[in-house]
Write a protein that binds this DNA or RNA. Structure first.
Lengths: 347, 347
DNA sequence: TGTTAGCACTCTCATTTAGCGAGTGCTAAT
DNA sequence: ATTAGCACTCGCTAAATGAGAGTGCTAACA
């Protein structure tokens, strides 16, 4: 038995109806709401076939049909048509970027909250990898005898800082000398490169200042090793409470416990997605029991043509894929665009 | 009719039992679990009195009694005895401060997560007021022709930064000049004072550098006005899902929607609490319909004897007050202590 | 006068039962 | 190949029932 046009139409109808109603859909309903020109009986036959093919399933005899994971997959791959965003949503996005987006962190976090607001699902976004960004400025400030703050400004507008221990005798002037050398030698260089090759050269240059030589090495080791971890923003988690599939507290708890673990979240976002385009992962394709009733829609955002982060939406498998995919795609382009405009010339 | 010792004992028993069971408690239960030396019938009489006095209430005839808000209040004010923390909890706190607490933000956030972990309720903490902190260092970094980053380091170890517009012609050397003057004149001064009196003096000093005079003023106006807002950390919100009173999704939603609004949260923490000591607000004392079934336990933490922030726990009215008050008190002292140790000499 | 045993009464909650309605699958007619 | 008709299944809801917990009252007791 093969998929023919009418089976596709029926499958499409089932999915459309189920997405909006969250109730199993029966043959009569389809015949009434969608004009396929055939009677419920015929639709029943088609449904029987679709069930045999694995695209839909029955919660129990005498209930309507519900799309199976395979059914959603088929829909996403072959049937769905992208939707345009409404004026209102375009507006939200446009306004969202207007103010208060002064560095990458803010842009990313703002994007995240817009996305959860628009889709009404949970949204996740991972900050740009810092290993591709370059040093713009570094500064050492003595806070206290024996303690100094290292401040590193990256060309992405991100600031990292860390408190380090320094020898008791070191004063602010010493620190300025070190900062000076560091800035002169390292400015504009990629952070990873700094750690690899340049220690030796600086070691040499600073040997004129014997007394702060130790400090310098110390700095490179400890100060620059400050957390380079990408941060994951998570927003609109409470939106999922509005989904009928989460009226059961237990389900909410298991989901939330997963979202609480950043490692797993990272996994959802980064796990072997192809770069470019929007990827949809449905239910057990996520390989996690806790989210077997959820799907994730992920896309990659870019700067200078380089992929630098991921952005995604998490919702129930019964999500409006056509709609969410469009939104994610749109947000990704907007984000890349905003970053490009904002940081043109910074690198 | 007046409260006598036995009535107090009965009220105490009701509250203790209800706190642990979340079920209305009857006269027989009390007679069995608590050795008051009297029969259920006598207890019933006392309960009847307590109800008339308003300390307990009955969900319906033939249910046991439940403490009323007034009952909790009486318990908190007159009956409860503080508990010591267990070895295990002391351990959590001790370890929590060992590593990874390099600046105030981290200390605060770490304290918050420890508190929610220990109490199993939601916990909130407000970062130190920055208006009492002093300028340690300021730095201007040119990111791009026309855009510069202002970085301000406070003596609390906090860093604030902001992107500002500068005239096209300004280069990094100009910025260094301005930073230099600013640092020389403003270092160690209270942030609020900076905004008030010193503009004029600096204006004069910088007049030697006509070309960056405008920039300087610009800076003071825009750069230093970066968000001074205290930040509120919120942790362990999902803990409340474990409380039986929140098995109802609707309640969860209304509570979460309140917690989502930072302003309201701030209100819960800051609203007319006396400074010093631990304050307990029960149910409608919070003046918010959304949290009429919740209580808040708040304390103030200090640095150099000055109150600088609030820390609190939010749970159902049926929370273990004796226990929570002890924990909050303990955490507050620990926090103040840690800050004191860490930043001694920074100011 | 305070305490207690006894008992009738109330009300909730869990369980059972019955009936309805939605939906299917099969069969026979078109 | 399509459709009307129909018996059958099964979940859901509402009503009925009974058990259990707890109270309030009364009368007896110390």
């Amino acid at each position: 038995m093969k998929m023919d046009t009418r089976k596709q139409q029926v499958l499409m109808a089932i999915i459309m109806d189920y997405i909006s109603s969250a109730e199993p859909v029966g043959s009569r309903t389809i015949a009434r709401k969608f004009d396929l020109g055939v009677s419920p009986a015929t639709i029943r036959n088609e449904m029987s076939d679709l069930e045999e093919l694995g695209y839909i399933e029955q919660p129990h005899t005498s209930a309507g049909r519900v799309p199976s994971q395979k059914g959603y997959r088929y829909y996403v791959d072959f049937l769905m048509k992208k939707k345009d965003l409404s004026k209102k949503e375009e507006e939200i996005i446009r306004k969202g970027y207007e103010n208060k987006v002064k560095d990458i962190g803010q842009v990313v976090s703002q994007t995240n909250s817009m996305m959860s607001q628009i889709t009404n699902y949970a949204s996740m976004i991972i900050t740009p990898r810092t290993d591709t960004s370059a040093l713009k400025h570094m500064q050492l400030v003595l806070m206290n005898p024996g303690q100094a703050m290292v401040i590193v400004v990256l060309n992405t507008g991100t600031i990292k800082h860390n408190i380090i221990e320094v020898p008791e005798g070191v004063n602010q002037t010493d620190l300025d000398t070190v900062s000076g050398v560091f800035n002169a030698r390292l400015q504009g260089l990629n952070i990873d490169k700094i750690k690899l090759g340049l220690i030796r050269e600086i070691y040499f240059e600073l040997s004129k200042h014997k007394n702060i030589l130790d400090l310098a090495v110390h700095l490179l080791e400890e100060g620059l090793s400050m957390e380079k971890e990408d941060k994951i923003y998570l927003g609109g988690v409470f939106n999922i409470l509005n989904q009928p599939e989460f009226h059961n507290i237990e389900k909410v708890k298991t989901l939330l416990s997963l979202l609480d673990q950043e490692g797993l979240l990272r996994n959802l976002l980064e796990r072997d997605y192809k770069e470019g385009g929007v990827t949809v992962r449905i239910g057990s394709e996520l390989n996690r029991e806790e989210v077997k009733d959820c799907s994730v829609v992920v896309a990659t955002y870019h700067l200078d043509g380089q992929p630098i982060g991921k952005i995604g939406v998490l919702g129930p498998t019964r999500m409006d894929y056509a709609w969410v995919v469009s939104v994610v795609e749109h947000m990704t382009l907007n984000l890349s665009d905003t970053l490009e405009k904002m940081f043109k010339g910074w690198r």
